[in-house]
Simulated scan of single mutants.
Amino acid sequence: MLLWEIFRTFVIIGTVSFGGGYAMIPVIEQEVTAHGWMTTSEFTDIIAIAGMSPGPIATNSAIFVGFKTAGIGGAIVAALGMILPSLTIILFISFFFTKANKHKIVQSAFYGLRPVIVGLIIYAAIKFGISNELFHSFSFQTLASLCIFLGALLALIKYKIHPAIVIVFSGIIGAVLY
């Protein structure tokens, strides 16, 4: 029964979520906490691990949630639940996309989805910042976190430094400062 609930939950998430893994994080977090499988704090830790692991963050987080909730079987059904909708939709769309992509309505729908996806990603970042008490009070750690964030953003956008290098240096700076 639990395995079926995990599978069903991740099939729904995989079906209705658009915009990639980071845009799915708020939806996954809502479902995971609503089912009582873990707290927001525990889920935040899962996202940190999933983000550092190779592969898509949404699928990785689903696997970690499934494993924490129901062991290996939970990890397998969570992964299948997350992957099957996308696979099915992509196979279906691939047959029609080249023709449909030229239609004004389809192009307009994609343009309409873009700001929503950006909003979901920003919401996820703010929610995790709040749940980890990065914005709770102004302290040295808050200032240091803000400086690391701005430095990483600058390195990525202006200097086009590879994200892996930015992650490594941010981790080293964090280890030294904290």
Rank of each mutant, 00 (worst) to 15 (best):
M1S: 11
L3M: 06
E5Y: 10
E5C: 08
E5H: 12
F7W: 12
F7P: 01
T9C: 08
T9R: 02
F10E: 05
I12H: 03
I13E: 02
V16D: 13
S17Y: 02
G19P: 03
G19T: 03
Y22N: 14
A23S: 12
A23E: 05
M24D: 02
M24E: 04
I25Y: 02
V27H: 11
E29V: 06
Q30F: 14
E31W: 09
V32T: 04
A34T: 09
H35P: 03
H35D: 04
G36Q: 07
T40W: 00
F43Y: 05
F43P: 00
F43H: 00
A48H: 06
A48F: 08
A48M: 10
I49C: 10
A50L: 05
A50W: 01
A50E: 02
G51T: 01
S53W: 04
G55Y: 12
P56N: 09
P56Q: 07
I57S: 07
T59M: 06
N60H: 09
A62V: 07
F64T: 01
F64C: 05
V65S: 07
K68S: 14
A70H: 06
A70R: 05
G71R: 10
G74H: 02
G74M: 02
I76W: 07
I76L: 14
I76K: 06
V77G: 00
A79N: 09
I83Y: 10
P85I: 05
S86R: 10
L87G: 07
L87K: 05
T88K: 08
L91N: 10
F92D: 13
I93V: 15
I93N: 12
S94Q: 00
F95P: 03
F96T: 09
F96N: 06
F96P: 05
F97Q: 13
K99D: 15
A100I: 13
A100W: 13
N101S: 09
K102Q: 15
H103L: 15
I105Y: 15
Q107V: 11
A109Y: 10
A109S: 11
F110Q: 11
Y111M: 15
G112P: 08
G112N: 09
G112M: 09
R114L: 15
P115L: 14
V116R: 11
I117A: 11
V118S: 15
I126Q: 01
G129T: 00
G129K: 00
S131T: 10
N132M: 03
L134M: 13
L134T: 00
T142M: 00
S145R: 00
I148N: 01
F149G: 03
F149N: 01
G151A: 12
A152K: 04
L153G: 11
Y159I: 14
I161N: 06
I161D: 05
I165T: 13
I167W: 11
F169P: 08
G171Q: 14
G174K: 12
A175S: 15
L177E: 03
Y178T: 03
Y178N: 04
